[in-house]
């Protein structure tokens, strides 16, 4: 799995951080998404797909 982000579209809802905290965080200065692990291990894959599904601004792409 490889994750890419379009952080310009991020609205800082933080749902990805709640669902997959090992993979996503928010920048201290403005709350915008940060990718902690662009190629997370298998045990994170379900959580990442869930984060992508509920992201309100369709920022997260899973390849």
């Amino acid at each position: 799995m490889k994750i890419t982000l379009d952080a310009d579209k991020c609205c800082g809802a933080g749902q990805c951080v709640l669902v997959a905290p090992e993979v996503f965080d928010q920048r201290d200065e403005d709350g915008i998404v940060v990718l902690l692990d662009a190629e997370p291990p298998a045990e994170q894959h379900d959580a990442v797909r869930e984060a992508a599904a509920i992201c309100p601004a369709a920022v997260i792409e899973v390849h």
Binding site: C11, G12, Q26, D28, E29, G31, I32
Partner: peptide, 15 residues
């Protein structure tokens, strides 16, 4: 909207 919302986004971030 983006400019203004981002002024307060960090205040409500998860951590």
């Amino acid at each position: 909207h983006t400019r203004l919302r981002r002024m307060v986004t960090r205040e409500f971030m998860v951590k």
